[in-house]
Amino acid sequence: MKQSLTDKQTSNIHLQLFISFIKMGFFMFGGGYAMIPLLEKELIERRKWIDNDDLVEIISFSQMTPGTIAINAATHIGNTKGKVLGGIVASLGVIFPSLLVITIIFYTAGDHFDTPYIQNAFIGIRACLVAMICKSVYLMIRSANGKAIFYAILLLSVTGLMFGLNPIMIIIIGGALGILIWGNLFNNHKKSS
């Protein structure tokens, strides 16, 4: 009896993961980072599976592994919540909208898809995306609650990218600075921050 209850709960989390990621997949326009506002709403606010710091962690982690950010994030969140099967169903959820929508377009409109209507709608979506990313960045900075050194690394990252530095390079430099500054490699004092 108890066994069947836990079975039911685990299959429930897998179903929730699948549905959440399908939903996000359908509204994910314009690349991996566009997923962040959707992840905030669905995973932080609605499901309460992760918090803002977890989200930043997931994104930096997704950047370090091969493949698209959306799939990496889905696999990691799915695995955290529902083990290996959770990772797989979450990724399938992200893939499903692409498969469905693109296959339908391929056999109907083909690449004559960009009618003026679609183009105008897309301008609106992109403008919305910029506004949503602004808020995401604000929420992430607020949640990190960092000191001056935090803002220094943030500024370094943006400046580096503007001068054409590779995002993977930015991630490596960030991690190395983390170890140097907070790793207590050179002193044995116990510091909490």
Partner: peptide, 27 residues
């Protein structure tokens, strides 16, 4: 924990920059 303390602002920078790029081509 130390590595991710450094990764956190670096990654927020990546996201901010992605926003700047989209803004640039949109506006």
């Amino acid at each position: 924990i130390a590595i991710f303390k450094g990764l956190n602002p670096a990654t927020i920078g990546l996201i901010a920059y992605a926003g700047i790029q989209i803004a640039h081509t949109t506006f």
